[in-house]
C-alpha cells in the first residue's frame, strides 16, 4: 500500500520494509508531512464554524472590533437566550423538528412501498412509471415552485406546516425509490417463496420479511431525507412568507439578518443553535451518512 498523496510528494516510496529504525522513520515521514498539510487545511475547513461559535459568545461590540481573537473577553451567554426567545429561534426549532420528522416519515413509507413493488414485481405500467421517475430525476427543484404555490393555495395549505411537509415529501425523491427498488430486487426469491408456502399474503410478506430486511436502506433514506429537509430553504421560505411564525431555522436565519443587521453575536448564536442538532446527529451516525451518500455512486 504505497499510494502516496501527490500533495506530499510525487516521489515513489516503494522500498521494501527494513527493520532498521531509521529506515522506518524515513518511510513514515511522507505520511506525517501529509498529516501536517491535511491538518492545516482542516483548520481552514472548520474555521467558519469555530468563528461562529466564538462570535456567538462575544458581546456585539467585541465581535465587531476584536478581529481575529477567538476567545471572548467575557462569555456572553445572553446571546443565546436572545436568539432563542427574542428572535424566535425556539419556535423555529420546533417547526423544523416537526416538519423534518413528518417529512422523513412520509418519504420513507412512500418510497419503501413504491420501491418494493417496482423492484420486485413486473406489472402493467411498471416500465412507464420507472421511465417517468427517471425522466424527472434531473428536473431542477425550485423550478416548479410557482405551480406548487398555486396548488397549495387551492388546497388551502399554503402558509401552513402541513402544506410545507406535503410539498417537501412530494418533491421527487426519485433516488430514494430507486435505492429501495434496487435493494428489494436483489433479495433472494427464496425468502418469499418460503413465506408464501407458509400462507403469507402480500402485505405480510412485505411487512414481516421485506421491510425488516431493508433496515439499512431505510436508515440511509431516512438520514438523507432528514439532512435534506432539515436544511431545506426554498420551500419553507415560500411557505412562510406571510406567516413568520411558521419559519424554519434556515428561513429564520435569513430573516433575522434582514431585521437585525448588526447583531452579529445574536446571529452567530442563532446559527450555532440551528446547526448544532444536525452536526451532533452526523457525529453519532457518521457511518450512515457516508454510506448513504456513497451509495449514489455504487449503484
Amino acid at each position: 500500500m504505497t499510494t502516496t498523496t501527490p500533495a506530499t510528494s510525487s516521489r515513489p516510496v516503494s522500498a521494501p520494509p527494513r527493520t532498521s529504525l531509521a529506515r522506518r522513520a524515513a518511510h513514515r515521514a511522507p505520511w506525517w508531512i501529509a498529516v501536517l498539510f491535511l491538518a492545516g487545511v482542516a483548520v481552514l475547513w472548520v474555521y467558519p464554524f469555530v468563528w461562529m461559535v466564538s462570535a456567538s459568545l462575544k458581546s456585539s461590540m467585541e465581535v465587531f472590533t476584536a478581529g481575529l481573537t477567538l476567545i471572548p473577553e467575557d462569555f456572553a451567554w445572553e446571546n443565546y437566550s436572545r436568539a432563542w426567545t427574542d428572535a424566535g429561534f425556539g419556535r423555529y426549532m420546533i417547526n423544523t423538528v416537526i416538519v423534518t420528522l413528518a417529512t422523513v416519515a412520509i418519504v420513507v413509507v412512500r418510497c419503501a412501498l413504491c420501491g418494493y413493488v417496482l423492484g420486485r414485481y413486473s406489472f402493467r405500467g411498471s416500465k412507464l412509471i420507472i421511465g417517468i421517475l427517471i425522466a424527472t430525476l434531473f428536473v431542477p427543484t425550485g423550478y416548479t415552485i410557482i405551480p406548487v404555490v398555486k396548488l397549495s393555495m387551492e388546497l388551502g395549505l399554503l402558509n401552513s406546516l402541513t402544506g410545507m411537509v406535503l410539498a417537501l415529501a412530494g418533491a421527487s425523491n426519485v433516488s430514494a425509490i430507486l435505492i429501495y427498488a434496487g435493494y428489494f430486487r436483489q433479495l433472494p426469491k427464496e425468502l418469499e417463496e418460503a413465506a408464501v408456502v407458509d400462507g403469507a399474503g402480500f402485505l405480510r410478506v412485505f411487512f414481516r420479511i421485506m421491510l425488516p430486511l431493508s433496515m439499512p436502506v431505510t436508515a440511509t433514506v431516512g438520514l438523507l431525507t432528514f439532512l435534506f429537509t432539515w436544511n431545506a430553504f426554498f420551500l419553507p421560505l415560500v411557505f412562510s412568507f406571510s406567516r413568520p411564525e411558521l419559519r424554519t431555522l434556515s428561513v429564520g436565519m435569513q430573516a433575522f439578518v434582514g431585521e437585525n443587521a448588526t447583531d452579529w453575536s445574536g446571529m452567530a448564536a442563532a446559527g450555532v443553535v440551528s446547526i448544532l442538532p444536525i452536526v451532533a446527529l452526523f457525529l453519532f451516525l457518521q457511518r450512515f451518512f457516508v454510506e448513504g451518500i456513497a451509495g449514489a455512486v455504487k449503484s
Binding site: 420528522l101 413528518a102 416519515a105 413509507v109 401552513s160 406546516l161 402541513t162 402485505l203 411487512f207
Partner: peptide
C-alpha cells in the same frame, strides 16, 4: 394479520396523523 404488520401500519398512519395534527396546531 400479524400484529407486526398492524404496528407497521400504525407507524405509517401515525405519521399521517401527526401531519394532520400539524394542520391543527401549526395552522391555528
Amino acid at each position: 394479520m400479524a400484529h407486526v404488520t398492524r404496528r407497521s401500519l400504525l407507524v405509517g398512519s401515525g405519521a399521517l396523523l401527526s401531519t394532520a395534527a400539524l394542520a391543527a396546531c401549526g395552522g391555528g
